[in-house]
Write a protein that binds this DNA or RNA. Structure first.
Lengths: 229, 229
DNA sequence: AAAATTAAGTGTATTATCAACATTTAATAT
DNA sequence: ATATTAAATGTTGATAATACACTTAATTTT
């Protein structure tokens, strides 16, 4: 019984690779590191690591994210399992990719430096090791899909944000522009934003109101399904 | 170089489990087997098996499907990687679930009997081993999502089908009814169905025209995105 | 104090899509 | 010739999506 079964089956190295997205006000960025291990050491790579026997795969992903950024309780979602034979020239490694959304300035800069990590705009990606480019491409598509139906975009913004920041985020994610009037009306009509009595004044004389995402109101609406955009 | 890296990392058993969907004209069915291995041998289970070192994970899924049904070149899609610590009481096994869509009467009956496999309506699922119920639930949600935007429903129908069969399929997938007039108009307006000069006559005196999915027309439209329903 | 500047904030008209609803038609059976 | 059966089809109203430009609030300059 128990751990004695399945003795004669092949065993695999399981990597977990994290596509970590951030937003700096203009473009969507991915957090990339200089790969520490051979093969391909020193080249640009997603942050990754091997799963361990004593942790779930989700926990492994959270551990690897924490290790790089110092952050926990981060929005994270499994993306896909990459299982091609020759995807890693260092050996047969099956990789489970996760994507995470973080506030770009929340991470621990010392840790980032330790791993030689940099935020790099999705439109200016350098060559990446293995199949990591494919992973980022898929993650971007999934982010578009996710952000259409779920209020996860706020994970990429400061706690307080203006409508123009929110619109800039959506425009960056979808690589297209939206009409300001239509966008504002649509978003506000969802009833999940709360306006503060406080304005952002650096970018205009009039100032733009700050908003916060109202999680409680969202929870009430969640079951019906919500169309963000 | 090559296979000498990564020596000291944990290795995992990788299972592949297949959610195989079929449609019998009224309900969506899953192909379930009586589990052959301990633990939980003899209980209802998804068809599964262990991945091998010499095959990609996609290939492993195709092999397992072929093994049960005798079918290849089947619509198949990776669903999710299930990696919880205790999901399999027989040991630490990470499972990658795939879902497949097949024509219910196309599979090899001898093979099905070999594995004591049965088509079971999603609404009448028996208790299943491990986390297989969760897998089916997720697969059903993914099927709904997939079939909304992609013309994969046809994989579940005979080559020639009537509009009422197609509607019955969508009603089974979404567990709701559609207005016949609206449904017909919407589907035909996509321009991806070709009407044959042939009628299905068993269920009415007038007879209902057969249609086939026109893959060529679809390919032309694919890039724009298509809203099936 | 008045005028100019800047980006924020807002309304309307048009079009397209979705949803609700019942009658006519083709083929066979009586 | 009539009855039967399910298939095929059209219209209307409601809602959502799109396109488009002026007014307003606050500060800066004259």
């Amino acid at each position: 019984m128990g751990r004695i079964e399945y003795k004669n089956n092949d065993r695999f190295l399981l990597a977990v690779d994290c596509i970590i997205f951030g937003f700096d006000g203009s473009g969507i960025k991915a957090l990339l590191v200089k790969r520490a291990l051979e093969p391909e050491a020193g080249k640009w790579s997603l942050m990754g690591g091997f799963a361990q026997q004593n942790e779930s795969i989700d926990d492994a992903a959270a551990r690897i994210l924490l290790n790089l950024t110092g952050l926990d309780k981060i929005y994270m979602e499994q993306l896909y399992c990459f299982g091609d034979l020759d995807r890693d020239p260092g050996g047969r490694v099956v990789s489970i990719a996760y994507f995470a959304l973080i506030k770009i300035d929340a991470s621990d800069n010392d840790k980032l430096e330790e791993h030689q990590a940099k935020w790099i705009d999705l439109k200016k990606l350098p060559p990446l090791v293995f199949d990591h480019k494919k992973m980022i491409k898929l993650a971007k598509e999934r982010l578009q899909q996710k952000v259409s139906n779920h209020p996860v975009g706020f994970e990429l913004l400061p706690h307080k944000f203006t409508l123009q920041q929110l619109q800039a985020l959506y425009e960056a994610i979808f690589e297209r522009s939206f009409d300001k009037r239509n966008f504002t009306r649509k978003i506000l009509s969802l009833g999940i934003l709360q306006r503060l009595d406080e304005k952002e004044k650096t970018s205009s004389k009039k100032g733009a109101f700050f908003y916060v995402f109202d999680k409680k109101k969202y929870k009430q609406l969640e079951s019906e399904g919500i169309q963000m955009i």
